[in-house]
Design a protein around this nucleic acid. Sequence first.
RNA 1: GCGAGAGUGGCGGAAUUGGCAGACGCGCCAGCCUUAGGAGCUGGUGCCCGAAAGGGUGUGGGGGUUCGAGUCCCCCCUCUCGCACCA
Length: 821
Amino acid sequence: MEREYDHKSIEDRWMKEWIGGKYWAAPDFPDPAKKRYMLTMYPYPSGDMHVGHVEIFAIHDSIARFVRMQGYEVLNPLGFDAFGLPAENAAIKRGIQPREWTDRNIAIWRASAERFGCSFDWDRMLSTCEPEYYRWNQWLFLRFYERGLAYRKEAAAWWCPKDKTVLANEQVIAGRCELCDTVVVKRYLSQWFFRITDYADRLLDDLALNTGWSERLKTLQRNWIGRSFGAEVDFKLEGIAEPVTVFTTRPDTLWGATFFVLAPEHPLAEELVADTDKESELAEFRKQVEAMTEIDRLSLEHPKHGMFLGKYAMNPVTGEKMPIWVGDYVLMDYGTGAIMAVPAHDQRDLDFARQYGLPVRVVISPEDRQLDPMTMTEAWSHDGVMVNSGDFNGISASESVEAVVAWLEANGLGRRAKNFRLRDWLISRQRYWGTPIPVIHCERCGEVLAPDDQLPVVLPEVVDFKPTGEGSPLATAHDWVNVDCPQCGGRARRDTDTMDTFVDSSWYFHRYLDPHNDHAPFDRAKSDAWMPTDQYTGGIEHAVGHLIYARFFQKVMMDMGMVRDPEPYPNMLNHGVVTMGGKKMSKSRGNIVEASAALDLYGADSLRLYLLFFGPAEQAIDWPEEGVTAIGRVTFPWLQRVWRLCEQVQEAAADAGDGAAETELRRHIHRTIKIVTKDYQGFSFNTAIARLMELVNHAYRYQAEGGGGPMVRELVEALLKMLAPMAPYITEEQWHRLGHETSIHKEMWPEFDPALASEQEVTMVIQVNGKVRDTLSVAPDIAESEMKELALSSDKVRSYLDGGEPSKIIIKPPKLISLVV
RNA sequence: GCGAGAGUGGCGGAAUUGGCAGACGCGCCAGCCUUAGGAGCUGGUGCCCGAAAGGGUGUGGGGGUUCGAGUCCCCCCUCUCGCACCA
């Protein structure tokens, strides 16, 4: 019975069959040789799911289904990143509790993901706002604390005035809050940190283990970690007992250091001017610097400001006096907050020196000219010959770096050193909707850890959970805050900050492997059975946040013996974002296409194919601005063509015969299997679809030329299998309509016969002087001599030879022969 | 400034890695068909000259290597992303 393709009449039925039948359930202990852990970044269940959100599902699920059909045991879980500011802000706006908002959205998201045809194993679903999950955030925090990796310190931290909380470095983008785009300010607060800098070297060096990462992603992480090698040099400061250390990447320029600069907020600055007439001047200077926003300070045109402190340091190699300044171009939180200034060889130092009339001394001379320290305006930061540098004169600067460091070490003036841009991870937030930090502050004992057997420290219900800007909303839950000290039994208070939600996402991929464990975060054997992930898909925007944090957690857990592998995600696919009008889809901007509307109109298969056919998975998609109605035809038109082709062959017998036309079509099927398999392996869905379109075009042409049903049926069965990962519903429906009793998604991926897939005829191109002059159809195994004969006997070719003989003949069998005259 | 990536028809994008540039699709043009639909089918469609056959030209610009360059090398331009007063 023929009928028209209508997604509405088929999708719901198959969705229920797959989910009810637990088609995608994975075992705890797969065959190690056959396991494939396909992970996608778990979503943040904000209110609206738009086509940008489902694009990742289209890509990820197509990969997972393809791998499953290849006979692997696939684990494909999904959970929800449920804690965090956006949910809390949305709840405040609506006057409801964050939990209510979050639970509702999780239900909506799960339903949409199911409708979209995602093959997730829902038995492993997790939600990070459940005590059974965040309990283990707390447990891990305690273990980190015991290892010295969690600590509290008073420090300048980024503060978002709108969200009223501190943020990690990674959440500040160009001086603005990542979430609400408000300009952030610095605040001095006592905050919890994870000592990720202890792992900086391993995080950098182990990037080499992530062989399935793009160069782009690795570069982002390398830049963020920002390791530089150099030396620490000790300077004696007037009136300061201890030597002050600076970090430099250019110890070879030490002889040219003519002044010394401290960051404005450096404590030593205060000490140096204490009881002098500079004291109030420094206070005024600091006020001015603080008044500048971070945006002003980052601006390229920003002129340097400084102030002489009236004291001197001594250059340890020349013995000369160096005036000590504070300068706003020196950062407190990089290196030691103090620098030796070498104006002749560092542009920033030179700018500062020219502005304030400080001495310039050339110690590296370029090969081809003489630098004039009195007039130069461009610092010479390249290699050259050392001059004015005592025993090192005449040596190439780049070659002497090692020798200088050795000399400093031998004389007790300094040592080899390296420095990182990466800062420790600030994890405390002054907000409600997060994991409570399991620490108790006792008047007598100080910081006391919540005992393991008291976990989870359950997030209390707080009616008024709005952030105040003065500490955390949890402080208002008096019954919860006031506790007895676990150590001395005396009066104590719970820590009222909550954890950054990136703590939750740093280990969730292990929890999927043992989601209901109530005596540990997860069982080691279960983790070892599936880890490391075989494929991780997600956006590149997590390059320097989540993807560094999770690697850090993995390494700490490895050091604790909890996991086996040094890296959790050796293979990473960063899909492109979906934009509209060139801008990222967002509700506030009003440029979204809602997933539910698109699913209603197009159906899941069409939406999946539209998204996959747009272009390469890694590339951004710019959805047409007309929105959900942008695409003139609702159904992906080619799916109608596929449907009709299938309908025509339902009754056909399997015996296709082997006439010339049949053999030709069969060859095409096998060539297509070969290419499409490769396309899937390279996540090149757009070209895979193109190849399948060609196959369908061939089938129609074959029919138009009088070809019969049996051969088309053979083609259709292969076509449906190859299309099944990308368009699961229509292929399942037609598979059954062809008379099969079992699911197409449990079929094996089609194999190609190499003999059939190989070309029977190839086009031989004949070039004369590099230009194509004739083409001939020849056998793939044609001999060179025959190619030459054919080429020279071609009329077209001869007309270009002008009766002469080619002076040179290049033959690349079987495709090309090039004649030169 | 440092680092990474990209530049191909009106549009999205292909090109077994040095071998017929523009696959596949959108759009557009012409025709067919009809239970006039958000249809379907057939053909055409880089640009220039030509009625056509055919010829020329063509992958941001300029040079180079090569029988042959979208692909490799050098210089330049433009764009995107990341880091950025990081010592």
